[in-house]
């Protein structure tokens, strides 16, 4: 069972979870995803919610449903590359927002990444 953030729809959280697993390489191109019911039992949510997750992921061309066979991570490497880029942009955006809130400007952000990046 998964603990969900209370203020965001569950289907979005699960989409992000699967996208994260794909970007990290825990789910590979062309790999089969669990069946709707298996996944629902596994994470502890309604079957209708998982159906929506798979539908929306398919709409975004991240997964493909093959009739009678199940749902698979796309094997389109271009799409996977843009997915990886999108995730990167999202994380950087989040980082920049936090830094801005604290009052750091862009130069400071770039410098701190360079310096700390070398250290770590």
């Amino acid at each position: 069972m998964v603990n969900f953030n209370p203020n965001e729809p569950i289907y979005l959280q699960l989409m992000n979870r699967i996208i994260g697993e794909i970007v990290r390489g825990q789910r590979k191109a062309g790999e089969k995803l669990p069946s709707v019911r298996e996944y629902a039992v596994d994470v502890g949510v309604n079957v209708n919610t998982i159906q929506r997750v798979y539908r929306e992921l398919e709409y975004e061309a991240i997964v493909e449903t093959k009739r009678g066979q199940g749902t698979f991570v796309t094997s389109n490497s271009e799409r996977l590359e843009t997915l990886r880029d999108d995730k990167k942009r999202e994380i950087v955006h989040h980082f920049m927002k936090n830094m801005q809130e604290m009052g750091y400007n862009k130069e400071e952000m770039v410098m701190s990444i360079k310096l700390q990046g070398d250290e770590e």
Binding site: P6, N7, E8, P9, I10
Partner: peptide, 9 residues
């Protein structure tokens, strides 16, 4: 899901 989406609750 609408409640989470619309009110963030």
């Amino acid at each position: 899901e609408e409640i989470r989406e619309a009110y963030g609750l």
